[in-house]
Write a protein that binds this DNA or RNA. Structure first.
Lengths: 197, 197
DNA sequence: GTCTATACGGCGATAGAC
DNA sequence: GTCTATCGCCGTATAGAC
């Protein structure tokens, strides 16, 4: 509700305390769990403090604005995703790996959570964009080795193999489902052609 | 931030005052403008009241819980979208009409706004799902007349023509763009084949 | 039925004490 | 470097005036 307030700030100091502080990592771990369990809206100075058994003021000391905490969480998640994709695309069927990963429910939920977060905390948007770009470049690198097999521009292919299952997941989270089965069948047919099992 | 509180309620009376009240429609109009201009987070009892020149208590009289106000706005938006699509798909190139509409920036922004809203106001989700289903059925009805032209299952086609530009819009809102151009070129090529200008 | 006034417990952010 | 007190928002509930 105070979006404008945080958006209009120049650039104050964004971090206090050492980056290696034990307290700091304990706070991050606790915040991550709260976010996974109850959503970003449940991540408050008070709840994180309670989870890490410190005072709310101390959490705020390490993360002066709540954005800073979310950004740290988002960056860590992005790194994890890229790690996973890098490993999963080395089995000879990189396109299927991309499709399968994007089809995972957990990832879609997390994406929705961060999209919603970015939507009312303007500092988060650019971090998401940069993370999305990093992920896409990693996917692109993983499929270009065999790109002549696919008959479709690699960049378009990677986008589609991510966007389609993601949007299906989003819609299903709310209860819209018309066309999902038919679309999945279409993609499966294509994958069977270009990356037979 | 008080999601749990509103979620745990049985089912109190959800509306007071007549549905045709002049005050009620004034409140809705004002709320719509605030939402379009500053996002859903700026829609508060106090801001809406100020916009409609009434007291916050009166807004709450007509919409006892803020969800009720958002649901009224979402339903009205869905009706408008269906009206628009019904008209736009009658020019002989219904698939292009679907694609063009989903490519509009305003609609994508609004969708993101409502998705974010649904993400932390659980009462909104089902209303979004139902609205999405209504829109999709209308689109489906509009293209099935000429469906033999398309070579792809109509339901999959409608989903893709909506999902692709929507996801492109979402990603661009944050700053991810790899693959967008290539994907758009791909779709344009397909549209030129099945619905030549 | 319409509408106002007020109170409560939550929140993020800030200033400043230790 | 660590932590507290306080401020001004918020949604919601309630009591009651007209």
């Amino acid at each position: 509700m105070n979006d404008e307030a945080t958006g209009g700030r120049a650039e104050p100091k964004r971090r206090a305390g050492s980056a290696t502080s034990k307290t700091r990592t304990a706070i991050l771990r606790g915040a991550e769990q709260i976010m996974a369990e109850h959503g970003y809206a449940a991540v408050t100075y008070r709840s994180v403090a309670a989870g890490a058994a410190v005072t709310p003021g101390l959490v705020q000391y390490y993360f002066p604005v709540l954005d800073d905490l979310f950004i740290a969480l988002l960056r860590a998640d992005t790194d994890r995703i890229i790690d996973h994709l890098t490993r999963a695309t080395q089995d000879g069927r990189p396109l299927r790996a991309v499709w399968d990963y994007a089809s995972g429910k957990a990832g879609t939920t997390l994406m929705l959570e961060f999209m919603a977060l970015a939507n009312h905390r303007k500092a988060i948007g650019p971090v998401m964009g940069e993370g999305g770009e990093r992920v896409r470049q990693a996917q692109l690198a993983a499929i270009t080795a065999a790109s002549q097999r696919y008959e479709i521009a690699p960049a378009a292919l990677v986008f589609l193999m991510t966007a389609i299952p993601r949007m299906i997941g989003l819609e299903e989270a709310f209860g819209t489902s018309t066309g999902h089965e038919e679309t999945i069948a279409l993609v499966r047919q294509y994958l069977d052609e270009v990356e037979p099992l």
